[in-house]
């Protein structure tokens, strides 16, 4: 399989050694994307968490136990498993920047994409969104509310990209060459430790360009060949091992070619 290529590739490098698992990114994501709170949020089969912070463990007994937190947005795969299975082209990777779209009005809710995505980044609306009375007054202008019956997922806060491009146009800049930091998703904006670095992986002026090539950088389930646009990094070997599941080279966290 050959990953789809674009001139711009929006991506993240998430430093797992800096993520404390505080959850600010999850909260900001819900706020930005108008995800209604659920009364029983402990039923993780029903909740919608475009950004989800996983807890990883080195599986050692106390006091040698270690944990790490791993924030998981949609990887915006270069080779998305979700796209070819969609019978109605409700999801596609066809836009400069490489963000995998999700068009709610087209989605018929068959959930093939959910089954196909190995990162569990897709969620199904089992119910219509219900906001506590009055809370609909605090909806964000950036994302339309979705009805029951459709699948949704992280889109790197796509409206922010549109707005950043508009702003560049207004200011006489080049919307196809945004400065580092001119566009960033909500999770990146709020993270108190700056664990998530965001930018164009192909642009040498963006920090992510170099960071993704760091010796401690890796991608989740590299061996599946989905070519995610989200990279992780950790100095802890056990974290790298867990994350890439002994990737292609057989060596944990080994440097991989980066296009």
């Amino acid at each position: 399989m050959k990953a789809k290529e674009f001139n711009i590739k929006w991506g993240m490098v998430i430093d797992l050694d800096k993520c404390t698992g505080c959850g600010a990114c999850m909260t900001a994501c819900q706020v930005e994307n108008n995800i209604a709170p659920m009364v029983d949020a402990s039923n993780k089969l029903r909740t919608l968490s475009w950004m989800l912070v996983y807890e990883l463990s080195n599986k050692k007994a106390a006091p040698d136990a270690e944990i790490a937190y791993l924030p998981r947005p949609c990887m915006q795969c270069g080779n998305p498993a979700c796209v070819p299975v969609c019978p109605v082209v409700a999801t596609d990777k066809n836009e400069e920047g490489g963000i995998v779209s999700q068009i709610y009005p087209r989605c018929i809710g068959c959930r093939y994409c959910m089954a196909a995505c190995p990162y569990h980044a897709r969620y199904f609306n089992w119910e219509d969104p219900v906001f506590p009375k009055g809370m609909e007054k605090a909806l964000s202008p950036n994302t339309s509310a979705r009805p029951r019956g459709v699948v949704e997922k992280c889109n790197f806060c796509h409206t922010r990209l549109m707005k950043a491009k508009d702003k560049a146009r207004q200011e006489g800049g080049n919307p196809e060459a945004l400065a580092d930091g001119a566009y960033m998703p909500a999770c990146v904006e709020v993270c108190p430790t700056g664990a998530i670095t965001f930018g164009d992986l192909k642009n040498p002026e963006h920090k992510v360009h170099e960071l993704a090539k760091n010796e401690n950088a890796f991608r989740l389930l590299e061996k599946l060949g989905l070519a995610p646009q989200v990279y992780y990094m950790s100095k802890r070997e056990w974290v790298r091992k867990l994350g890439d599941n002994y990737a292609a080279t057989g060596k944990a966290g080994a440097a991989k070619k980066h296009s």
Partner: peptide
């Protein structure tokens, strides 16, 4: 058929009780 499905799904999602988001 794709086109037909697309339109049908747009129609099917025109639910009145889905909150509208603010503009401005």
């Amino acid at each position: 058929i794709w086109q037909g499905l697309d339109d049908a799904s747009i129609w099917s999602q025109n639910w009145g009780w889905i909150p509208r988001v603010p503009k401005g």
